[in-house]
Write a protein that binds this DNA or RNA. Sequence first.
DNA 1: CTCGCATATGTCGTGATTCTATACGTGTAG
DNA 2: CTACACGTATAGAATCACGACATATGCGAG
Lengths: 109, 109
Amino acid sequence: MEPKKSELLQGTLDLLILKTLLLDPLHGYGIAQRILASSREVLQVQQGSLYPALHRLERKGLIASEWKDSETARMAKYYALTKAGKAQLQTELEQWRRYARAIGWVLQS
Amino acid sequence: MEPKKSELLQGTLDLLILKTLLLDPLHGYGIAQRILASSREVLQVQQGSLYPALHRLERKGLIASEWKDSETARMAKYYALTKAGKAQLQTELEQWRRYARAIGWVLQS
DNA sequence: CTCGCATATGTCGTGATTCTATACGTGTAG
DNA sequence: CTACACGTATAGAATCACGACATATGCGAG
């Protein structure tokens, strides 16, 4: 019973990552797992999307990385939200809600 | 008070067009106007997005076009949903709802 | 009458982002 | 010792929305 392929909407991945990192720092692999779990198996982040996104976010200064031992005694790169990242998260949250609400209006019309 | 630029999420434009055409046949310009109105001025469809999308949908057989006089006595190309288009609309509706619900779960986690 | 504006359709090039496929490396369970 | 879960990464292709531009017409204001 493999999870359905997600077809992430372009633009929402950053929001998902930022939100997941708000809880606590995590490495890429763990971020994908947590998104999968918290979306109840609906949103599956592909590695080819995940890592470029993480590098992008780091380049923008929204997250910061640090190599640490993972829970399985293996090295992993942990990412944490920066101050700018938290602000950006708020912005993207509002945008998403505004956008989803607008779509809802159109669908009800 | 110009309407805020929308930054349409990639993939949702087809859904919006299909849904708008479910009500009744309409020309491109009118579709954009109706989406703007029914989204309460939030979703502004750019011409550079609109017409390629319409051609795309027609090429896929989801909508069909016909030249007619518009309400302003000017020629306009009216689009109507095909049977396949109606089916596709249902699919995309479900996908959107499923997706939006999943995002909601992640944001609440 | 003429000038500008809303109406109306269209294309081109660009940029952003996601996907598939591939590659590599490690710790652990059987 | 071998398969598998863990973990990071990139290259190439595909999609798609956008801004800028081009074109044309009917109508109302001055």
